[in-house]
């Protein structure tokens, strides 16, 4: 993809309220109501996504009204049903798992039965990205970019052990230890590779969670794209300073810290 996504029409993550539950118990104030108070999971979210955790389930109406009257609850329920019933997948293959992913789309397993079998080659038209395979240092920035190019609300299915932890290649000098180091994941499907049945279960589970308005994107220790000039100056940065422009996007891997 050659162009960057910079402008958005419907608002960015931090402009939206944090509340993603449509329940009665919580009043959905437009301000952040302290994800820290929500427990461990939410605080990790906070760490990952900044204030205003997961805004993918919020509607503009909700944003405008600022509370949760009956009609909006119904509307939210409907929207969640919509998002959970139908999704376009990003046609995205990395490694071994993509073979099983293709089998999941194809004749015998037919993921399209669940309304989730239309692969779109352009990330602009996709809702779900299945990350099927090992992510290595050279690819991670590109994958992050592809993820950023998808429109909200977007969901991530991480497929296979490599995207859970690096899998059998975890000890490799070049291997990212899981997809969550780079992008938030909604569902993990373990296996090396997972059988198509497992992937179908994963997608069905994702649909169920979306329909119920739940989501928990957690990133353990994110590698982010940042401008080279913003990096902390250390030996490595000094060494590369001659080769890389200040405003070039880079991803810095601290291998010693990743688990």
């Amino acid at each position: 993809m050659s162009s960057n996504r910079e402008t958005t029409e419907t608002g960015t993550a931090d402009a939206q309220p944090t509340d993603m539950q449509f329940g009665e118990a919580r009043s959905a104030s437009t301000d952040s109501d302290g994800p820290a108070a929500e427990g461990v999971v939410e605080s990790t979210q906070e760490a990952r996504m900044g204030s205003g955790a997961d805004s993918r389930f919020n509607s503009k109406l909700r944003n405008a009204f600022g509370s949760s009257p009956f009609i909006l609850t119904k509307f939210d329920k409907f929207m969640n049903w919509v998002r959970g019933s139908s999704m376009f997948m990003l046609q995205f293959g990395i490694a071994c798992c993509s073979i099983e992913m293709m089998h999941t789309y194809a004749v015998k397993h037919d993921l399209d039965r669940f309304g989730a079998g239309v692969p779109r080659a352009s990330p602009r038209q996709a809702d779900v990205i299945i990350v099927p395979g090992t992510i290595v240092s050279k690819f991670a920035p590109r994958m992050k970019r592809v993820y950023d190019q998808m429109p909200e609300p977007k969901f991530v299915v991480s497929m296979g052990s490599c995207t859970v932890s690096g899998g059998p290649f975890q000890q490799g000098y070049n291997v990212i230890k899981g997809a969550e180091e780079v992008i938030p994941c909604d569902i993990h499907v373990p296996g090396c590779p997972p059988r198509p049945e497992a992937l179908i279960y994963g997608v069905a589970k994702l649909q169920e969670r979306i329909a119920e308005g739940e989501s928990a994107p957690v990133t353990v220790k994110p590698y982010e794209l940042e401008q080279f000039g913003d990096l902390q100056r250390d030996e490595l940065v000094e060494h590369l300073a001659a080769d890389i422009d200040e405003d070039t996007l880079v991803m810095r891997y601290n291998w010693a810290d990743s688990t």
């Binding site: 996504r5 402008t7 029409e9 919509v82 998002r83 019933s85 309304g115 429109p151």
Partner: peptide
């Protein structure tokens, strides 16, 4: 479902 979902997606206007 498809129609409503597509209409409710974020509209990205690239730079």
């Amino acid at each position: 479902a498809d129609a409503v979902r597509l209409l409710s997606k974020e509209l990205i206007v690239p730079e």
